[in-house]
């Protein structure tokens, strides 16, 4: 079930790659930002993180739009080295800016449902997990509908496939890129807010999720939204299984190995074979 959340935070990454062809190494930092937005919404406004998730989305969406406009846009045609290290630089800046602003402490919220769980037959399901899952599914569906049916969604897919042709059709590729990037990081922030009830926020939390997100996306095929969903579920399952066998530190190792293996043998992802 945790896979559903993984899917949502990773969809953003895959969206950015799909539309612009850029791997955003800083993506997980937006998850961290989402967590902090939700945390302060809770601390100052008393807002439940689940309700603050849309707020996190909006705030990070705007930030993402600005970053795309000022930074990313300039390297879209640059050599890959420039693209890679621009987002790596962004990662360092965001992480340390957060460290300066929020301090290095760990912050968590307390919600009434935090420790409660539901009984479903023989299974106990913790409420925060269930809520996170439900919210993820909802936002995933919303994105899917948006991409599928709105004019923006279609224009964005057209831009991803062929920027030149899209331009000829009167689509402003610049605007589409901005939208895709903003949407991508916004969605990841949304995921960050949603998991806050059962995790703690800290400026370095992004690092923990970075590999996970990349694994999800690479498993599903970089650039494929459906792939991210499948990849998210797969990573959730891999994690639960490896938790049974390995001590906690080595679980990440399993992910890494899966990650490298997939990159090496199926760089287009598990679903990519059909193309």
């Amino acid at each position: 079930m945790i896979g559903g959340v993984y899917a949502v935070i990773s969809i953003g990454l895959t969206l950015v790659f799909g539309v612009m062809g850029i791997v955003n190494f800083a993506q997980a930092e937006f998850l961290m930002l989402g967590m902090f937005v939700a945390y302060y919404a809770w601390a100052w406004l008393g807002l439940d993180p689940l309700l603050a998730a849309p707020l996190a989305f909006v705030v990070v969406f705007l930030l993402g739009a600005a970053i795309q406009r000022v930074l990313i846009r300039r390297v879209l045609k640059a050599p890959e080295v420039a693209q890679i290290f621009l987002t790596v630089g962004l990662l360092i800046v965001l992480e340390n800016a957060a460290l300066l602003m929020f301090g290095s402490g760990f912050r968590s919220v307390s919600t009434p449902y935090q420790t409660s769980s539901l009984q479903l037959g023989p299974l106990f399901i913790s409420v925060p997990y269930l809520a996170a899952f439900a919210m993820s599914v909802a936002s995933g569906l919303a994105l899917w509908l948006f991409l599928k049916s709105s004019w923006f969604g279609r224009a964005m897919r057209a831009t991803a496939q062929d920027p030149m042709a899209a331009r000829l059709m009167g689509i402003d590729a610049d605007r589409m890129h901005m939208l895709a990037f903003a949407l991508g990081v916004g969605l990841t922030a949304f995921g960050g807010a949603v998991i806050l009830p059962y995790l703690t926020a800290s400026p370095t939390v992004g690092t923990q999720f970075a590999v996970l997100m990349f694994t999800v996306v690479v498993l599903g095929g970089l650039g494929s939204v459906a792939g991210a969903v499948v990849g998210g579920l797969a990573v959730g399952i891999i994690q639960s299984l490896s938790a049974l066998v390995f001590p906690i530190q080595l679980q990440n190792l399993v992910l890494f190995v899966v990650f490298i293996a997939v990159l090496a043998f199926r760089p287009k992802g598990m679903l990519g074979a059909a193309r």
Binding site: R74, V88, I92, N96
Partner: peptide, 17 residues
Amino acid sequence: AGLSQLVFGLLLILVIL
């Protein structure tokens, strides 16, 4: 803490741009 790393990151971004 973090300020010097921040400078490091900003420098990287600046050089690339």
